[in-house]
Design a binder for these strands. Sequence first.
RNA 1: CGGGGUGUAGCGUAGCCCGGUAUCGCGCCACAUUUGGGAUGUGGAGGUCGUAGGUUCGAAUCCUGCCACCCCGACCA
Length: 490
Amino acid sequence: MSKGITSRSEDYSQWYNDLVTKADLAEHSAVRGCMVIKPYGYSIWEKMQAALDKMFKDTGHTNAYFPLFIPKSFFSKEASHVEGFATECAVVTHYRLKNDGNGNIIVDNEAKLEEELIVRPTSETIIWNTYRGWIQSYRDLPILVNQWANVVRWEMRTRLFLRTAEFLWQEGHTAHATSEEAVAEAEKMLEVYADFAENFLAVPVVKGIKTANERFAGAVETYCIEALMQDGKALQAGTSHFLGQNFAKAFDVKFTNKEGKLDHVWATSWGVSTRLMGALIMAHSDDAGLVLPPKLAPIQIVIVPINRGDEELARITEVVDKLISELKAKGIAVKYDDRDTQRPGFKFAEYELKGVPVRVAIGGRDLENGTAEVARRDTREKQSVSREGLADYLEQLLDEIQKNIYQKALNFREENITKVESYEEFKEILDGKGGFVSAHWDGSPETEQKIKEETKATIRCIPLNNPQEDGVCIYSGKPSKQRVLFAKAY
RNA sequence: CGGGGUGUAGCGUAGCCCGGUAUCGCGCCACAUUUGGGAUGUGGAGGUCGUAGGUUCGAAUCCUGCCACCCCGACCA
């Protein structure tokens, strides 16, 4: 089908790698585990950022920026937090290089830092150390801050976008006067993420809470959105944490409440990362390349002229220019590819690979008939459309494509949530069709751990508003009040 | 970090066992003919063979270290 892309059925991982590199999204860098996000890939990320940033602002948040480096002592103040991240931290120990006299640049051992700096794997500690100075009274609360930043987690195995040593993300850090308010904030941001995932990424998600095993290091409760990829593996697409008073206690952040009493501040943090790029790719794309939802596509419509000679091209361009101004007036990102160095068939394949939602081809025949050939990326259907009202038609088509790819992903997700009643059945589904497996669990971390060791499946979440029903744990046979969602995950 | 594999032109590769300065395809450049699904012909450019050492008259080839990537494990967004 497509040149140089491994098919999904042949090798799903390789298909993913091929897509990321061939569609010019990212490439491996000279630094182990770190990627270069290429202009086309970064354009998509910028669209995600813009949409999310607006949603954050609309819910009352403001952006700020905190340092890349965190003093080691800050980092160790919250016990479970440091334990969770200790094994994957990059540490800065020196601040100078020197010439060793033989023309080699070496670390200057004279320039050792008195206290090592951790390259942030997340910023709770530096932020809460800072918040201490910002908060004295309930009148200073809430603090609703977000930062767009890079973070570093020294991963053993990396995959472009899904897991890299350095990645880009946003992290919201809020401070509240009451537990209820902080919980409400964490839940609100989970809703924002779910809204973004479904309406922009066109990826349906399950909202839920994490079990103790899967909880963020330092959190009291971790909320998450979980998405299902085409290969039947789950992907955590975003998390929102209720941090209780853990960081306030660790950093001694107190405030005087309305009753005049001192209390520790209540906290949340929440984040999504460039991993969403991975979700976007794996949720919709096919063997011909990327399939981008119109709302995140850097190019929403590409127009390709099909001409014999310059004279005909000029006549086509005249028609196209008019169409472009109509589309731009509607706020649609349109590109006219009139390069004469590539032939139309090449361009068709290229824009399919890059996931451009709609392609419009206009040739000599169309000039005569007053038509254009419109091809949609999601279904790969082509049809001839009258130029009369074409801009309106295309605008609606983009909406329809956005809805269609969401619906397609939703259908897939629904077909791949399987209820099971026994451990045998559980293993059979995991090894066969995959996807989410809905099963009774006794609620113990030990059972969860055993299941993970034996099947590699983890509890992705306990869905919000989960129906309560009596049953028995598929593993231990102990009584259970509800089903939880298991899956193999990225 | 453990096990396995791979690194030769921008990309994909042959050559390596058995040492003598590198094969083919795509891409690139020029010109011509082409243009409704990845054009064709002719000519041309491009390589410290991942990297640093070692063995040798001579290393892509043999030996050692290092680096990167891929697959599988442990860890994680």
